[in-house]
Simulated scan of single mutants.
Amino acid sequence: MGGVAYGSGRQALLDAAIRVVSTQGLRGLTYRSVAAEAGVSHGSVRYHFGDWATLVEEALASCVERSVADAELSSDEPGFGQFASGLVSLVSANPDAQAFQYELTLEARRRPELRPVMERVNDIYRDAVQRELARNGLDDRALAELVFMTIDGLVFHQTAFGDDQRTERAVAALRALLSAYAASRS
């Protein structure tokens, strides 16, 4: 392994941490496993992140930032025609990032200290959905929660099973339901 390129070290280590957790679970995440995945010394991991919790939180933040943008939960166009149109490509482009988040979600059940972190992550996704629904006249927090959980389930199934067509059909059905509901309230 040639190691990480200068200037890309921090992101390369975050990406390595995501891959380790997605394949080995959170219990497999150590400085050594991340260093081995990235092709650097384990001292580099400690240098960049200081402690294990910071590594996990920064890797998670990196995943969430990319996922919110790539899922296309918001649009400049009126209506729901493009809502969540990036779900399949989001998972296809980086299934490890999604698996990483689900691993952390499950681990939060066993490690209470992770629960507030994962709640904040879900709030970010939930708020993105809420904003898009409100932009289209559906300012209803309960509906936003339902749509968020539906999208989360779709991403989970796409991550686990990779059935692009099934996911695309489900996203199209979700868009149709939202459009019909919005029209019925006008």
Rank of each mutant, 00 (worst) to 15 (best):
G2F: 13
G2S: 13
V4Q: 13
A5T: 08
A5I: 10
Y6E: 12
A12H: 07
L13M: 14
R19K: 10
R19D: 10
S22N: 01
S22A: 15
T23M: 00
Q24Y: 01
G25T: 05
R27E: 09
A35G: 06
A36Y: 02
E37R: 15
A38S: 05
A38M: 00
G39D: 07
G43H: 09
S44Q: 08
V45H: 01
F49P: 04
D51H: 10
T54N: 12
L55F: 07
V56C: 06
C63E: 11
R66V: 10
S67A: 14
S67D: 12
L73F: 05
E77L: 05
P78M: 02
F80H: 09
A84T: 01
L87V: 13
L87P: 01
L90D: 00
A93R: 11
P95D: 00
A97Y: 04
A97R: 13
A99E: 06
T105A: 14
L106P: 02
P112T: 09
P112V: 09
R115C: 03
P116N: 09
P116R: 08
V117E: 04
V117H: 07
M118C: 13
E119T: 12
R120C: 01
R120Q: 14
R120T: 14
D123I: 03
R126K: 12
R126C: 03
V129K: 10
Q130C: 04
Q130Y: 13
R131W: 02
A134G: 03
R135M: 08
R141M: 06
R141N: 07
A142G: 11
L143Y: 08
L143D: 07
E145V: 09
M149A: 07
D152W: 14
D152H: 13
L154N: 07
H157N: 13
Q158L: 08
A160F: 15
A160K: 15
F161H: 15
T167S: 08
E168S: 14
E168Y: 00
A170F: 06
A170Y: 05
A172H: 02
A176W: 03
L178H: 02
S179A: 15
Y181L: 14
A183P: 04
A183Y: 05
A183M: 07
S186W: 03
